[in-house]
Design a protein around this nucleic acid. Structure first.
Length: 129
DNA sequence: CCCATGACGCGGC
DNA sequence: GGCCGCGCCATGG
């Protein structure tokens, strides 16, 4: 396969061409779905869990397609390593992410999760293989 | 093909 | 201990 692409467009319908393994995106979504209500995790934590510690960025990129996949992915439970809602702008409305979190009893102040350390859910720890 | 741009993170200062 | 620079990796111009 000369040129394998993975555009959000394609992710919507089918997995990236040329991918024999379970796509990276699929795995990211799978882990994200297992984050319990009232808890949050980080892009880096997911990346590390998937053995791609250096691809935290790709995890964030993958979340772009999280809105049109099924079953739904609780993308609002994924924040950056500082507990900040760095992806709020990618939701339907800039305040959606925060609203969803507060609905789960997670306090948000200045675009950051309050008591992030306590709410943090690390797949590498909680989700023993 | 080279450059810029990210829902990121670590290491240096 | 916060701020800045650089590495990552896929995309788009």
């Amino acid at each position: 396969m000369p040129h394998k692409k993975t555009t959000p467009e394609k992710i919507k319908s089918v997995l990236p061409s040329g991918r024999t393994d379970t796509s990276f995106f699929e795995q990211v979504y799978d882990v994200a779905r297992q984050v319990p209500r009232g808890r949050v995790t980080s892009y880096g934590a997911i990346a590390a869990y998937l053995g791609a510690a250096k691809s935290a960025r790709m995890v964030g990129w993958a979340m772009n397609g999280a809105f049109h996949v099924k079953p739904p992915v609780p993308a609002h439970r994924v924040v950056n390593r500082n507990g900040m809602l760095s992806g709020k702008m990618h939701f339907s409305t800039p305040t959606k992410m925060e609203e969803l979190l507060k609905k789960e009893k997670i306090s948000v102040k200045n675009d950051a999760v309050v008591d992030f350390e306590k709410k943090f859910w690390d797949p590498s720890v909680e989700l023993e293989l």
